[in-house]
Every structure is written in structure tokens, then in C-alpha cells.
Amino acid sequence: MRIDTVPAHRPLVSHQRFDYDPIHQRALKAWPGGRRLAVYLGFNLEHFAFGEGLGARLAPAAQGGPDVLNYAWREYGNRVGAWRCLELFEQLKLPAGVILNTALYDHCPELVAAFAKRGDELIGHGHTNAESQGGMPPEDEFALIESCTRRIELESGQRPTGWLSPWIAESAATPDLLARAGYRYTLNWCHDDQPTVMRTAHGDLCAVPYPQELNDIPMIVARQMTGPDFADMIVDQFDEMLEQSTQQPLVMGIALHPYLVGQPHRLRHLRRALTHIVQAGQQDVWWTTPGRICEAASA
């Protein structure tokens, strides 16, 4: 067949938010203090409805009654796991980006207060992870974003500048609505190892890298990885990215959920992995939060 007779294909649907930009062609200044690798903890504090809605599952939902097993398993994170993780972060002197369901202000406000007291960044994460915002009409979605923003500011005195949608669920309008609400960055996109400027109807929105590989839900729940294996994965990711960062500054996020990594048998291995990063990266690692990464990238 002659080339000029090959049928034309229509262009694929595109998000139009950013252009293709291969990482090896970019120039980005070093992080504060001349550091090369920005590392942050994306610590998810979530609350779920009892007997309805979405939620990670340890086992199939019970038939004919409320799903006690999976609800109670997730609730362990708020009652026990998050407090154990908080102790670990304090021991290692690590900041956290706390990705927050506002339903926690009704359920266990003292947990949120404990992280806010130590100066951790609070990041919008919807009202509950029992619901998804992806299918909402635009004005309903904007109302959700606005109400969560106001609640965090009212309760904790800190207006959030970043957002992660529950279940990473977006509508086509989500970036526009976040920018309209005054947000500076989103964690919904996992397409890069450096921040990306996204186009919206209300100006630029920064996409700070949020991991879907270095993330305990897809690794432990979906792929059934063990605690030691997940810790080894964190160490391997760090060691390789630290080497890569000699060429250009990079971002490494670690996404954690306390009902998973707060289980004692996993917490021991998380402690090992984070201690390795602290000890090995004293000269070149910037322990930080997503908001500070957005600020530094925009400066």
C-alpha cells in the first residue's frame, strides 16, 4: 500500500493540560540549600461511612449486613496506626503532608490536631473516602472543594493549598475548579518525577508528583506485597533516585495509609526504610512537604 493511501486517523482525545516534555531536556534549579532530591511523606488520614460507599478491602464485603470486617480494619488506622506513625515521624524528625478527609473533624478531631500541632501541612482530600468526586456535576464538585477548604481553615487555622481527590477521581473540570477555589497544586497526577505546570481556565496549577507505585494501597492491597517487600521498594526507589538526582533535582513521594503501614509488622519495616533515607541522604535530601515543593518550583 502506498503511503499516501494509508487512511488518516483522528487525533486521540487529549487532556490539553500540559505538553509532552521529556525529563532529560529540562533545566530546573536545585532545591533549597542546594539539595538534589526532595522527599515527602503523603500521609493519608481518611474516614469511611459504616456499611456503605467505597473503601479498600481486606476481604470481600459481608453479605446481608454491614461490612464490619473491612470498616473496622480501616478504622484501626485512626485509632492506633496513625498514632504509631506519628511517633515514628517524631523520632526521625520528619515532616508530613497530611492528606485529610474533613469527616475526621467530626469523628476524631484530636488526631488531626496532633499533626497540625507539629506544623505538618494539611492537604484537601474531600470529605470522606467513601465517596468519589469524579461523577459530580461541576457546581456540586466545586461546593465540595469549597466546603472542605473552609472546614480545614476553620478547624486548624490553615488554608490548604493542595488537593488529592479521594481515589484520585477527577471530572474533566477538576483542575479548573481547584484553581478557581484558589488551590496552587494538585497531587492527582503521577506522570513525572518533577513538578508540572498545568493549564486551567483560571490560571496555572502545579502538579506535584504523587506516587502510584511507591504507595501502600496498590502495592499491599492490590498486589499483595509484604511489609518487608514494600520497605525494600522504598529503599530501592530512594537509592536509584538519589543517583539520578545528581543530573537534575527530583521529587520522591511516599504514599502511606495508617491502617496499612501502621500495622505493627509493617511499621517495623517502614521504620527501617525511613531510617535508611535519613542516614543515607543527609547531604543531598530535602525532607519536605508537597506545598513547599510547589513553592520552590514556582519561585
Rank of each mutant, 00 (worst) to 15 (best):
L250A: 00
G281P: 01
A56L: 12
W83M: 01
E170S: 11
A297G: 04
R199D: 06
Q263K: 15
N129P: 08
E146P: 00
T174P: 05
V39S: 04
T288S: 05
T102M: 02
R271H: 14
R118M: 01
D284M: 08
G262M: 05
R79N: 04
L205M: 06
N70K: 04
A231L: 06
G65E: 12
Q247L: 07
P258W: 08
E141G: 10
G124H: 15
G55V: 08
T174V: 08
P22Y: 00
E110Y: 02
H24F: 00
V278H: 04
L144A: 12
L267M: 06
T246F: 10
Y76N: 00
L37T: 09
D284K: 08
T246D: 14
E213R: 14
V68Y: 14
N101W: 02
L177M: 05
T246S: 12
P218V: 10
G124A: 15
R10N: 10
W163Y: 12
A103R: 14
P195L: 02
M233C: 13
I293D: 05
A296K: 03
H191R: 09
I293H: 03
S14R: 15
Y210E: 04
T288M: 07
D216L: 05
L122R: 04
H15F: 08
G227Y: 14
H15G: 14
T161H: 11
Y259M: 13
I217G: 01
I152F: 02
M225A: 10
L154A: 15
T149N: 11
R199Y: 07
G253R: 10
R184W: 09
A8L: 14
H24V: 00
A280M: 10
L58R: 14
G281D: 07
R150G: 12
A113R: 09
R10H: 13
N188L: 09
P32L: 03
I152Y: 01
R118I: 11
L274E: 08
W83Q: 02
F43W: 03
R268A: 15
L54V: 08
A299D: 11
N44W: 01
R180H: 08
P290G: 12
Y20K: 08
A181E: 12
Q212K: 13
P60N: 09
R57C: 14
Y40Q: 03
A72R: 14
G162P: 01
A56I: 12
R17P: 04
P109A: 05
D239M: 06
T289H: 09
P137S: 06
W287V: 04
K117R: 15
C108N: 12
V261G: 02
Y76H: 03
F89C: 07
P228T: 06
D239S: 12
E146Y: 10
A222V: 15
T200V: 05
L242S: 14
F50N: 11
H269A: 01
W167D: 05
I168W: 15
I145H: 05
S132Q: 13
L144N: 13
F18E: 11
W287C: 01
V285D: 02
L111V: 00
L250H: 03
Q247G: 05
A255D: 11
L104V: 08
G64K: 06
L274P: 01
A207G: 11
E295K: 07
L154I: 09
P166N: 11
H269I: 04
D176M: 04
R35F: 01
A113W: 02
I217F: 03
W163I: 03
L94S: 02
M241S: 11
H191V: 12
A113P: 04
W83P: 00
R57V: 14
S132R: 14
C108H: 10
I277K: 10
I123V: 11
